[in-house]
Nucleic acid binder design. Structure first.
Lengths: 177, 177, 177, 177
DNA sequence: CATGAATGAGCCTTCATTCAT
DNA sequence: AATGAATGAAGGCTCATTCAT
């Protein structure tokens, strides 16, 4: 007995795969439909326009989910940073998610509608992380937060070699604390 | 008296503007032609396919040029980092270049041909910077380099408010030295 | 209740009309679409490229169909030749088919893929006709077959005036028997 | 010292080669220019439009030249036919001319302007040949002439194997005399 | 829900033709 | 005569989107 949302989810996951390999705009709904094993028409039943599908994929591609989860864990300071870094590195250890992350970041400027939402959620989350990590938010803390996430982003950029992982994470945390 | 290459350059610059606003793939050659003040056909005289134009724009959008220049300046250590950071922030202080930077990063995975070249130049340059800054290259230095460029990247990501600039740069340099 | 293939067929028939008047390569898909009363996109749903449509039209334009049919009739010798000649002349009594016949013959050399298939079917059929007409195949018979079909071809070349038809056919048959 | 007309001729010959391989309409003036070793602009100096070049090539591709020459030879009857047949077979023993012949025949219907001229010259010549061969022209003679040229055309259609050549020619002449 | 034929707007690309040099 | 940069009009083809079944 299929649950409602199963098909929708199958489409999104297929889209992530296809979009990662072909790009949000080069990929066609045909390709997504084929990858998901459904008809092209069905995609438009769940997502009124292709942009809606892109938006959904873009959201899942950002680290917002893991940051939210980590914030709910009740961890503070150094422990919170470590948890976030580990989850972050895990999420972007696969090519698919790495590709999608940078695509999601790059449509911010060309697709304001999609970009606006993303930017807002991001800055809100960052401040909440700073609050939990340092106990307060000021200019210096914000800079440190940027350095922290910048380091993670750069890590995602070049691919992740397992050997360095723990060393890298520790170093980054040490530096921004 | 028009020099050879002038027209080609005019096209690339127009393309950068248009691509930044509309995205590599949403932007049309019509728009580029109009912005460059040339006929659409002429674009294909200089660039056999749109992808070739994208490739050219993508290369110019990365910080490779400024890193190369800074490496030629003869500066070492902290001074070199500061120079790179300042030039980097200057280059990406305009929306156009910020938009293009992330688009360039994101096509690496979907356009392997373009991506391969970029990746290689990048890793070579990073090691050369590390060499000039620290006098040697090892795991620890590489990690510091990544943190440095990650921080700059993150800075480019969110836009650059003038007030923070010097503070941010100093902080980052202090941290990775 | 539309049968499957009806639309495809409508497109091919419209294409034959348009191609005959304007030429395979001068004719546009727009013109074919308009003549068929369908959208341009639909043509590419049934024929992935214009060349595929041309290939289909080229095949129908040759006398292969009528030769096959006549071979199935069970007729032999002089009767078979007469039947073929009559059907041939009937098929190419309209300008459309005459134009298409020579276009089909002329793309053999410029479109090898299309040409190869055609050539093979042709030589096979000719030998089968010789077999049925003369009871055996040798050099002399093959030459006679060529003369027979050459005469028909030349007839198609200059247009067919009704008055001469029977006389011409009789003469040709008499000569090659 | 180049004679006037040398360049023009070089262009036409290059065009024949290119058109034979790629088709009158698929071939571009660029390709012709490259094959002729001249600039594209120069082609339009000698031929105001591409169609003019096509027309010139089409004319040279027909057997009009050899028929005219043979008519001037003073030969009569069987000897004239043999001479025409031999020259015909010689001319169309190369793929280039065979390809061009059928292309020239096929544009008659789609390019009336070009086709009209060709048709007229053809029918005039045929009657003159009949006159020289049979001494008079009537329905029967015209039919025989058609059979004769139809046989040659069919010969050009399938390529020419040297072995059969003389046999074929003799047979055809015997039949139509 | 699900399918896939059908649509049509629009894009990349080609190419004949012109023209300044 | 000769060149090749420049133009602009199409044309082939794609693809998001709709809709009848």
């Amino acid at each position: 007995m299929k649950r409602r949302g199963d098909v929708r989810n199958k489409i999104v996951e297929a889209a992530m795969q296809v979009f990662a390999e072909r790009g949000f705009f080069n990929a066609t709904t045909d390709e997504v439909a084929r990858a998901a094993g459904v008809s092209k028409g069905l995609i438009f039943w769940y997502f009124r326009r292709k942009d809606d599908l892109i938006k959904e994929v873009a959201k899942r591609s950002l680290p917002l989910d893991i940051i939210s989860e980590c914030l709910c864990s009740g961890l503070k300071g150094r422990q919170l940073l470590r948890r976030i870094a580990e989850e972050y590195v895990r999420k972007y250890s696969c090519d698919t998610n790495r590709s999608l992350l940078f695509q999601a970041l790059s449509i911010r400027s060309t697709h304001p509608t999609i970009g606006k939402e993303i930017s807002e959620v991001c800055s809100t989350l960052l401040d909440r992380v700073a609050e939990e990590v340092y106990g307060s938010v000021d200019l210096d803390k914000r800079v440190r937060m940027r350095i922290f996430f910048g380091a993670l982003l750069c890590y995602a950029l070049s691919g992740v070699e397992e050997v360095n992982r723990d060393f890298y994470i520790s170093k980054v945390i040490e530096i921004v604390m």
